[in-house]
Amino acid sequence: MNLFEKMKNIDRRYIYLVVALCIIIPLLIPFNSRTYVTDPTANLYKKIDSFAGKEDKAVLLSFSHDASTMAELFPMEVSILRHCFERNIKVFTICFSPPAAPLMAYALNVAKEDYPNLKSGVNYCNFGYKPAGLFLPIVLGMGDDVAEAVQTDADGRKIKNLEILKGIRNYDDLNLIIDFAASAAVFSWITYARVRFGANVAAGVTAVMAADNYPYLQSGQLVGMLSGLKGAAEYEKLVDVFAAYEDTEYPNGREFSPEVVKDTWVPIMSKKISYDSQGSVVQTNVDLPYKFKQARIGMNAQSIAHIMIIVFIILGNIGYFLTKKKTAEVS
């Protein structure tokens, strides 16, 4: 038995061990890496940012996933909430499945910890869990009157009495819906909220779903999309570079600029310092808590893991073709 035949029949548990090491080591030995921002992420960022400080514009986050895909979706939820909180954008959250309810509350709690002045019912509002049977009545009802369709929030308060509802009546104001899912749940929003009322819809999806959504990005049915952990890492970077940016020239964040995205990167392992492409030091407010760089730290391990998978495929194929050649020679 030659080396390749031995390798072909290797116990799968050795492969599992390599996988575990390829994930654990890069997480334990952190390093800085650059995040390439794609258009679907940048477009979503720009759309949300266009609501900054507006009384009559709001974002609705719909949580359509359970804990199984939290690793991919949770960092993007926290990043988007952070963006809204940094830029004074009204944000609502809702879910239609029981397991999503605590995840939604958890994301809100984690994101708002750093913003002690935010108030529920004023800056943000958690509509809470609504039974799946109410999906259509609420989605269609919000086209006419959000307060009438949703009725109460997670704390049981009548939402029409809440300050945050001032200026928010229907999809003209609740102008962007972002659905976080490991499924095609966002299409229900496209089918009912967009077709009927022209609402803007975006998606935060697990990477498995991402490639399928490109036709909907091109057609404008999705205004933007975050794809898996990479999408979350991109959004984390955008919030650092723009919404949460602070220096003497920009004390309260700065506007999106494609040139700045390309040139600036945030070294996640250092504190309070960022470097641009020329290597000159730029002061930022980057004293990042772990929760705001979780996806980017994860992407370090993702780099190594992708190389590992590619090496596995190449090795497997070399073994396959050599064995095939040998078999052909023998016969």
Partner: peptide
Amino acid sequence: GYTVMARISLLIGRVQ
């Protein structure tokens, strides 16, 4: 390619 990324991400989440 995206599916590989998704599966690895889930494991990264648990290891994190």
